[in-house]
């Protein structure tokens, strides 16, 4: 099924839901997107496997995580966010502001049109040139 052999080390991330064939499986598209984003950044050398594994383990074992690991990708995204913050690439307030900006943009976009950040009615006040 895979056209190219995705030999990313991230496929062996602890706890990653996998099919019988060993491929990662996702419950929703954003999870695949988050996974792909992480694979891409790792391939580009933004962080090492060890750095990733440490951040992920920290988030997965945080108090309050679901016992059935149904929130595994929530932990995944939190780990990626914190890793980017540690690397000085992002900062919490900026990511949160952008997240809310995307949500307002989505609500403001008529169905059938692509959702773009520019559709956020408040964009100018919350996001002045990152």
């Amino acid at each position: 099924m895979s056209r190219c052999d995705v030999a990313s080390a991230l496929v062996s991330s602890p706890g990653l839901p996998r099919s019988r064939e060993g491929d990662p499986v996702f419950a929703e598209p954003w999870q695949a997107q988050a996974f792909a984003l992480t694979v891409h950044l790792h391939e580009r050398g933004l962080f090492t496997w060890t750095e990733w594994a440490q951040h992920l383990a920290h988030e997965v074992h945080r108090d309050g995580r679901a016992a059935d690991a149904s929130d595994y990708f929530d932990a995944w995204v939190a780990a990626l966010t914190h890793l980017l913050i540690d690397k000085g690439v992002a900062e919490e307030g900026m990511v949160l502001a952008l997240q809310q900006s995307w949500q307002r943009a989505a609500e403001a976009t008529p169905h059938g049109e692509p959702i773009v950040l520019e559709n956020d009615p408040q964009r100018c006040s919350t996001h002045q040139g990152v």
């Binding site: 933004l46 690439v89 990511v95 952008l98 809310q100 995307w102 989505a106 609500e107 959702i115």
Partner: peptide, 25 residues
């Protein structure tokens, strides 16, 4: 239909930050 959950929006936000910094292709 156009509603982003917190997680959907968070992933988009991370992509935006990384794209603006030229860290993703």
């Amino acid at each position: 239909d156009n509603h982003y959950s917190d997680m959907q929006a968070r992933v988009r936000a991370l992509e935006t930050v990384l794209a603006e910094k030229g860290l993703i292709d």
